[in-house]
Design a protein around this nucleic acid. Structure first.
Lengths: 211, 211
DNA sequence: GTTATAATTAAGTGATTACTCACTCAATTA
DNA sequence: TAATTGAGTGAGTAATCACTTAATTATAAC
C-alpha cells in the first residue's frame, strides 16, 4: 500500500502511523466498519494511544478530511491546474488539456485512498460536501472559467456553450477514467494511458458527429 | 421519502417494510452505520422479525443489491435504452440522445437511494462490483455499441473514435448531472432540466472547439 | 543513580451491536 | 369447542464497539 504524503501536517511518528492506517482502513471498509482496534493493530500502536492523539474516532476522519481539504486543497488540488493554465496560455488547446488531464489523473492516483474517503463521506455528510464544494469545486470552477474565457476570446474555443456544462463534462471524463481504472480496473485494462487520454480529448474537443 | 417499487420481488408486507426502511437508512448513513434497531423502528416492526426474514443484516443488503441487480437490471436499467435505440433508428441523433439521457435521469431519480447504495457498496465490495459490471455495464455497453455502429454506418456519427471512450463520455455526463442534482443540489439549481440536457448534448455532439 | 516527566500500554469500562429464543395470541383446522 | 399453528414480539445474549485509566516503561535532567 502506497502511503500518502502527510508531511504538511507536522505530525509525530505515532500520529502519522495512525492516520496512514486509518486512511487505508477507511478506504477499504468505510469509516463505520473500520474499528479502532484494527487501526491500532495496523499502525502497530496500542489502542489507547489513538485516543491520546485523536479525541474520538470521528476526529481521525476529520483530520483526514477537513484538515486536508482546507490545508492541502490549494497545494495538491488547485496548484497543478493553475500552473498549467497560467503557463500555457499560448500553447494549443490540445496540449493544455492533455497536461491538465494527465496531471489530474496522476494527482488523484497519488492521494487515491484519501480521495475515495472524501468522495464517499461527502455523499453521506453535508459538512464534508460543503468543505469539498467551497475548497475544491468552486475554486477549480473559477480557474477553469478564466481559462475558458481567454480561449474563447482567442476564438479557439466556442463562445456559444455553457462553461459550466463544459467544466462538468471535462471533470466527469476525468472522474470516470479514474473510476474505471481504480474501481473497475479488473475489467478494463489500458495498455497505453497516453493514447487513452488523447482519445478522450479528441471527443471533448471535436464531439462525435461527422462534421 | 418516495418509496421504491419492489413489487417484482413478491414480498409480504413486513418484508417490504423492512426493505424500504433499510434502503432509506443504508442510503442515508451507509450500511455499517445503520442499525437493525433503527430499521425495525422505521419499519414499525420488531427487531426479531427482521432476522426471521433475513438471516443477517448483510442479507438485507444482498436482497437490496444482488437480487435487484439480477432481477430488475433488465427491466429498469436496460429496457429503457434498448427501446429508445431500437425504435428511433431513423430519428435524428439529437432526439435519440435526448430521449436516452432524459430517460436515464428519470430512471435513476426513481430508484435513487438504491442506486446510491449500489454505487457506494460497489466501491467497497468486489462481489457487488462484479454484479454491477456483468448485469449493467457490460450489457449497456453492448446495446450502445450496436447503436453507435449503425449511426456510424449512416455517416451520422464519427467512425474514427473509440466507442468505449464515447460510451464513457456520455455515461459520465449523465452521472455527473445526476450527482450535481442529488448530492450538490444545494449549490446548483437548474430551472430548466430540458435546456440543461440540450446543452450537454450539444457539447457531446459538437465538442468545444470552434470549427 | 535518582527523580520527575512524558509516552505508551494492557486491561479494563459501559454502551451498543447483531442476533436469539421463550413466549404470546390471533387465525386456522380438527 | 378444542387443538394446533406460525407470525410476531421484545427482553435477553454474547460479542464487539469506542473510549478510559491505572500501571508500566522510556526519556531526560541533574
Amino acid at each position: 500500500m502506497k502511503k500518502i504524503d502527510l508531511k504538511e501536517l507536522n505530525l509525530n511518528e505515532k500520529e502519522e502511523k495512525i492516520l496512514q492506517s486509518s486512511i487505508k482502513l477507511f478506504s477499504e471498509k468505510g469509516f463505520s466498519a473500520a474499528t479502532s482496534k484494527e487501526i491500532a493493530k495496523d499502525a502497530g500502536v496500542s489502542e489507547g494511544i489513538i485516543f491520546k492523539y485523536f479525541k474520538t474516532k470521528k476526529d481521525i476522519l476529520k483530520a483526514i478530511l477537513l484538515h486536508l481539504i482546507n490545508i492541502l486543497s490549494e497545494k495538491i488540488v488547485l496548484k497543478g491546474i493553475k500552473d498549467i493554465f497560467k503557463n500555457d496560455k499560448e500553447c494549443d488547446i490540445k496540449t493544455v488539456l492533455k497536461k491538465v488531464i494527465y496531471d489530474r489523473i496522476k494527482m488523484v492516483d497519488k492521494i487515491y485512498p484519501m480521495a475515495q474517503i472524501i468522495f464517499m463521506e461527502a455523499i453521506l455528510h453535508e459538512e464534508i460536501r460543503d468543505a469539498v464544494y467551497n475548497n475544491i469545486i468552486k475554486k477549480a470552477m473559477e480557474i477553469f472559467n478564466d481559462f475558458y474565457f481567454q480561449m474563447a476570446e482567442k476564438n479557439i474555443l466556442r463562445k456559444n456553450v455553457d462553461i459550466m456544462v463544459v467544466f462538468r463534462s471535462i471533470l466527469s471524463n476525468i472522474a470516470i477514467f479514474i473510476a474505471q481504472k481504480k474501481i473497475f480496473g479488473k475489467y478494463f485494462k489500458f495498455e497505453n494511458i497516453d493514447k487513452e487520454i488523447d482519445k478522450v480529448i479528441d471527443v471533448i474537443l471535436n464531439g462525435i458527429t461527422v462534421q
